[in-house]
Design a protein around this nucleic acid. Structure first.
Lengths: 224, 224
DNA sequence: TTCCCTTTGTTGAAATTTCAACATACAAAA
DNA sequence: TTTTGTATGTTGAAATTTCAACAAAGGGAA
């Protein structure tokens, strides 16, 4: 377990907790680590919510797929980030998403009830973790607002530009790499892949952006 | 303040708190009540997040408007529901939405920091309220998943049906009233109002639904 | 009741997206 | 290096949406 301490220390769930407290907490919470191959699911649509997951290595994607197989990309998760916490806290009987490894990856799973209810050992850290959870779930809310800001645009062009500008802002540079391939980006923007490729091609020819696979560079922020 | 106790007791923020505790809490938290006319804003896009709002009477809408005036409807709020809690908990410097009264309405505003940090009076309720906040924010997350479930559909027809089916499910009846007029529903579904009206007209003629203003009735759940 | 204003419905043209199909580029494996 | 499979780009037709403009219906005030 020790080899994951570097990631865990940076994880917001354990913010403001001493090293010895973290050690004790992991034992008390009965935390366990699992490995996944690319494409494997750590959580499946329809399952009851029980665990909070912490990405240790690799990356995961939160996706939802409807009746007709249309896929919608919710988010990409990197080490230190959590998933499932909202469903577990709200105690939903069927989670509306799946969480899939987008490469070989490891997660730590913790029973959410164990976090939220103080234990017989009278551990002190529960209150701190509940507060940390609150901040994490609140931050996820902002992520949703961001996705809505992007996907509420009506055209592929506007969606793509809104997304790229947001990424540039977050990355602090007009050149950056996104965590999605074309199909995944289309699923995030809620548009057709071929239409997205066409739009990227057009912007490329116009000299507005440069795009090589997942690597983007914006030359002119606006072409209004 | 007493006249609002009925609503406040049902508000999830005060769940599992005794009546006397609530009285004490409101004083300690320096809660204050404000009134708003239809269309007035209790919170404006770009402002720093500071307060948690509780709807006491009337109703509010959470909306966001972009550069070009395109409006996007996030949610409708009825008495007992909260707003602003996610932004306040995440301490964002500029909220991405506005909260507008959709009729004459009243809210209770509470400084979020006062909730999250225990006070010099050593009040006991802070921990309980933080836990309550966690559940509320987690539940809001589910609301976002629901909006995404609806708006990720590609056609006005699919979006409308997805929305109506969800409402029917939540209302527990195929006949129900929605909290939006046509323009607002279009803003929620992220489609054009005229296109939405046309789609509703078509479904009406096909005998799939009945629609009178905000009142809907579904005859045939599916027309796949 | 009439007038006025807001909401909802309707329509056709222009713009855009979806869909299906295929071409090309890229990367891993043989 | 060649092979093979996947990812990305391209295209044209069909379907759908947006846009602008106007018509009709509903509700409230005078």
């Amino acid at each position: 377990m020790e080899k994951y301490f570097e990631v865990l220390c940076m994880c917001p769930l354990f913010r403001d907790m001493a090293h010895w407290e973290l050690t004790k907490a992991l034992r008390c919470l009965n935390a366990r680590v699992s490995s996944f191959e690319k494409g494997e699911a750590v959580m499946n649509e329809g399952e009851p919510a029980k665990y909070v997951g912490i990405v240790l290595t690799g990356s995961f994607q939160i996706v939802r797929t409807d009746f007709f197989g249309n896929r919608s990309m919710i988010a990409n998760l990197v080490p230190g980030e959590l998933f499932g916490e909202s469903f577990a806290c709200a105690e939903v009987e069927a989670v509306p998403v799946s969480v899939l490894a987008s490469e070989a990856a490891e997660v730590m799973l913790i029973d959410c009830l164990k976090i939220c209810h103080s234990c017989s050992n009278a551990c002190q850290f529960h209150q701190q973790m509940i507060y940390n959870l609150l901040q994490i779930v609140a931050a996820k809310n902002l992520m949703f607002h961001q996705k809505i800001e992007v996907t509420s645009k009506r055209t592929t062009h506007e969606k793509l530009m809104a997304y790229l500008m947001l990424q540039a802002k977050q990355f602090g540079s007009l050149e950056f790499e996104i965590p999605y391939d074309r199909q995944e980006l289309a699923d995030y923007l809620e548009v057709e892949r071929s239409g997205l490729s066409a739009e990227i091609g057009k912007l490329r020819r116009q000299g507005v952006i440069e795009a090589d696979r997942s690597r983007f560079k914006i030359y002119k922020p606006f072409d209004v």
